[in-house]
Design a protein around this nucleic acid. Sequence first.
DNA 1: GTCGTTGCAAAGCGTTTGCAGCCTA
DNA 2: TAGGCTGCAAACGCTTTGCAACGAC
Lengths: 123, 123
Amino acid sequence: MQRKTQQRSAIRDALEAAGRPLSPQEILEAAQGEVPSLGIATVYRGVRALLEDGWLQVVDLPGAPSRYEMADKDHHHHFHCRSCDSVFDIEDCPGSLKELTPRGFRLESHEIILYGLCSGCAP
Amino acid sequence: MQRKTQQRSAIRDALEAAGRPLSPQEILEAAQGEVPSLGIATVYRGVRALLEDGWLQVVDLPGAPSRYEMADKDHHHHFHCRSCDSVFDIEDCPGSLKELTPRGFRLESHEIILYGLCSGCAP
DNA sequence: GTCGTTGCAAAGCGTTTGCAGCCTA
DNA sequence: TAGGCTGCAAACGCTTTGCAACGAC
């Protein structure tokens, strides 16, 4: 059974407040504002528990550590800022990509990542 | 200056023969057919040298180790088989994704990854 | 012979695990 | 009080680096 602890509350609060996918390190830094003694191992364990609860989902981007965001979002994609390294949600999706799939292959899902500069980093 | 050694030839041969992106471990296993004593560190160093030469390019996919393929390919995307974990090239591209970009953001590039079963793994 | 290259082993780095003590229920 | 939770440190897997021996030129 799950217990309600300061540490796990701090982890959830950090993810709710961010509104964008966070890496374990980003979660640690944000949550230490609430619980300064928080350790990185606790973040990893808390994240895993929240994933198993279905409260969080993984956001894996190429060449970057896994990030996590709340699971209450519809299908969407991500924008990765090459300057500040933050990741933002993209609401739209161009829809089916079945026409790209080679003959004989079975398409199950897809991921689209946009790269560039976010509004804070664009000149 | 670059010297021509058995090890680097074996690494290039493995990548040319594969025709799809390979991970360092896959390169090692393929190239050891030619040079059995080959070590993984040499693969990493050889890959880095080939990247700097512009002969290779990185293929980074979410949650997977970096893979490498020859740089003489046009813009394209990838299909990642969830059964055998191999990665295949997709020739097509749906084109501009500018309409997905949030206001104020500057789009520079994009990546599309398809997931499913390759022709060898599909039932 | 020079000096870039190689293989091994050790070091890094992000993530996971073992364990004794802590704290929620 | 019982047993899940935490922080620390050690363990892990992948990648990089230090170093002495090797070999291309």
